[in-house]
Amino acid sequence: MTAVGTGTRHPVPGRLGHLDVLESEAVHIIREVAGEFERPVILFSGGKDSVVMLHLALKAFAPASLPFPLLHVDTGHNFPEVIGYRDRVVARHGLRLYVASVQRYVDEGRLRERPDGTRNPLQTLPLLETITRNRFDAVFGGGRRDEEKARAKERVFSLRDEFGGWDPRRQRPELWQLYNGRHAPGEHMRVFPLSNWTELDVWQYIARESIELPEIYFAHDREVFLRSGMWLAPGEWGDAKDGEPVERRRVRYRTVGDMSCTGAVLSEADTVEAVITEITASRLTERGATRADDRMSEAAMEDRKREGYF
């Protein structure tokens, strides 16, 4: 450290790149939540966006430890590699993890399986009940506005009513960097620190910060079958039907969700750098390529958000 009072003037640091600016903005958002809420929680799925969000949160409070717990909504049909990754991260940083289990709701008869086997829409009830039970007042999500058309109109601080619902017509205007955290008892705020990040920004940041990810993000050999144009992996959620031959292919995942609706892409990209090259050249959006849940209708995401989805 330079001696104080010697008259030394440190030079002006160099211009900030877009990742520095996005990082500073996200940290600012995370710290605003620490300043304005009593019981925040971070939604953590093990997906790359939530991994980056956790990394930013850890940096925001360094050298102190993270003042928030994590919450994972476990569909029961998650990739085993992702659950393993989640538990390693929690142990490494000494974090507190809440798990909202869709399986338990199904076992108790409080949620019914859908005919198509996907459990993604079933996550909303366990999520909302866990928020209410633990009186979480701010819930960090890794959602990005570039993901999907309804998300493009989402605020950084997004107020949810006591039913967890999102009303696009009643959103508060959000000006400058002045986030309004006021909420009534029973309401909570969804907070999206990565609002302004794109898929490519996330990957460039992962490369820059050398952030570890679940291995399924990188090319590996896996038994898969083709259904509605998506490469799905058999598992506890279900298996290939007649006329859906199971093949061993070299694949990776571009998003991480419920196994029943998250498709793999054929890929040879086995490093972060190769992944960046690949998505730069891709002709498909990450959700368009790999998510059956968004294909249900033009307004699939909008409808789920209104019901309290992530």
């Binding site: 460039q204 820059r208 998506m230 054929l266 050249a281």
Partner: peptide, 16 residues
């Protein structure tokens, strides 16, 4: 469905 078949259509932005 195969990203490896995609054409190199978007120029890669500089890292920063």
């Amino acid at each position: 469905d195969s990203m490896s078949h995609a054409t190199q259509d978007r120029a890669a932005p500089a890292p920063e």
